[in-house]
Every structure is written in structure tokens, then in C-alpha cells.
Deep mutational scan, measured.
Amino acid sequence: NQASVVANQLIPISTALTLVMMRSEVVTPVGIPAEDIPRLVSMTVNRAVPLGTTLMPDMVKGYA
């Protein structure tokens, strides 16, 4: 089972991601792979991401 990136807090729309905002967790459905966390830092989300939500590729500008 692959770990995915999960929001560690509410991430408001257009917020630049930082390490403290994300954690890795094995979830269903599978989202962005946890090993991509370093790549996600400073990318922005294009929607509000509630606490505990799995980050999907279409939620992060420039990721997909």
C-alpha cells in the first residue's frame, strides 16, 4: 500500500504548501504519492483543502 499526501490542517485556496501542512498516510483513494512531498513545497492549491483530505493531482497548480 502506497502512502499518499494528506492535509495536516485546513489549507486555504491559493495557499503555498509547506512541509507542516502535509503528512503521509495510506488512504483510499490513493492521491499524490508521499514521496512527492518535497516537490509540492511552494506549489499552491487551487481550492480549499480541509484537514484530513487526500491531496489529488488536480488540487495543486502545476503538479499534474
Score class of each variant (00 low, 15 high):
residue 60 V to C: 03
residue 22 M to Y: 02
residue 55 L to D: 01
residue 33 P to S: 08
residue 36 D to K: 11
residue 61 K to N: 15
residue 27 V to G: 01
residue 33 P to H: 09
residue 53 T to A: 11
residue 16 A to P: 12
residue 9 Q to C: 07
residue 2 Q to G: 13
residue 57 P to G: 14
residue 9 Q to A: 12
residue 58 D to A: 10
residue 29 P to Q: 05
residue 64 A to W: 08
residue 64 A to E: 14
residue 33 P to Q: 06
residue 1 N to G: 13
residue 18 T to L: 07
residue 42 S to T: 11
residue 17 L to I: 10
residue 49 V to W: 03
residue 57 P to Y: 09
residue 3 A to H: 11
residue 41 V to H: 02
residue 51 L to V: 12
residue 63 Y to K: 03
residue 41 V to L: 12
residue 24 S to R: 10
residue 13 I to V: 12
residue 54 T to V: 11
residue 18 T to K: 09
residue 36 D to T: 09
residue 46 N to Q: 11
residue 55 L to A: 01
residue 34 A to R: 05
residue 24 S to W: 07
residue 55 L to G: 02
residue 50 P to V: 06
residue 30 V to K: 10
residue 31 G to D: 00
residue 15 T to N: 04
residue 33 P to C: 06
residue 6 V to W: 02
residue 3 A to W: 09
residue 29 P to C: 04
residue 26 V to I: 13
residue 18 T to I: 06
residue 17 L to V: 03
residue 11 I to Y: 01
residue 2 Q to H: 11
residue 2 Q to W: 11
residue 23 R to Q: 05
residue 21 M to S: 05
residue 57 P to A: 15
residue 7 A to V: 07
residue 47 R to H: 09
residue 33 P to K: 13
residue 33 P to F: 08
residue 14 S to F: 14
residue 4 S to V: 01
residue 59 M to L: 05
residue 15 T to V: 09
residue 9 Q to H: 11
residue 60 V to E: 01
residue 39 R to A: 11
residue 6 V to F: 01
residue 48 A to K: 11
residue 29 P to T: 05
residue 51 L to N: 14
residue 62 G to P: 05
residue 36 D to F: 13
residue 42 S to W: 07
residue 58 D to P: 08
residue 53 T to G: 13
residue 60 V to D: 01
residue 64 A to N: 13
residue 43 M to Q: 08
residue 30 V to F: 13
residue 50 P to S: 10
residue 12 P to L: 08
residue 11 I to M: 03
residue 42 S to D: 13
residue 51 L to F: 13
residue 54 T to F: 03
residue 60 V to H: 03
residue 24 S to F: 06
residue 37 I to R: 06
residue 1 N to I: 14
residue 31 G to R: 01
residue 55 L to N: 01
residue 21 M to I: 03
residue 3 A to Q: 11
residue 40 L to N: 00
residue 62 G to D: 14
residue 37 I to Q: 04
residue 49 V to A: 04
residue 39 R to P: 01
residue 36 D to Q: 13
residue 7 A to T: 07
residue 51 L to C: 07
residue 37 I to W: 03
residue 28 T to I: 11
residue 19 L to T: 09
residue 40 L to K: 00
residue 6 V to E: 01
residue 6 V to Q: 03
residue 48 A to H: 08
residue 13 I to W: 09
residue 24 S to L: 06
residue 3 A to I: 06
residue 57 P to W: 11
residue 5 V to S: 01
residue 44 T to K: 10
residue 34 A to L: 03
residue 15 T to M: 08
residue 48 A to E: 12
residue 62 G to F: 08
residue 8 N to A: 15
residue 42 S to M: 09
residue 21 M to K: 02
residue 10 L to Q: 14
residue 17 L to R: 00
residue 8 N to S: 13
residue 28 T to W: 15
residue 47 R to Q: 14
residue 30 V to C: 07
residue 37 I to Y: 02
residue 46 N to I: 10
residue 56 M to V: 07
residue 54 T to C: 05
residue 56 M to P: 02
residue 51 L to S: 15
residue 4 S to I: 01
residue 46 N to A: 07
residue 35 E to V: 15
residue 18 T to F: 03
residue 11 I to R: 00
residue 19 L to M: 10
residue 14 S to H: 15
residue 38 P to C: 07
residue 10 L to C: 07
residue 63 Y to A: 03
residue 10 L to F: 15
residue 41 V to F: 04
residue 14 S to N: 15
residue 9 Q to R: 10
residue 5 V to K: 02
residue 8 N to M: 06
residue 11 I to W: 02
residue 18 T to P: 00
residue 49 V to P: 03
residue 28 T to H: 13
residue 44 T to D: 04
residue 19 L to W: 10
residue 26 V to E: 09
residue 44 T to P: 08
residue 9 Q to P: 00
residue 19 L to F: 12
residue 6 V to N: 02
residue 19 L to A: 11
residue 47 R to Y: 08
residue 52 G to W: 04
residue 44 T to V: 10
residue 12 P to N: 07
residue 20 V to Q: 15
residue 51 L to D: 12
residue 45 V to E: 01
residue 10 L to E: 15
residue 1 N to V: 13
residue 25 E to P: 00
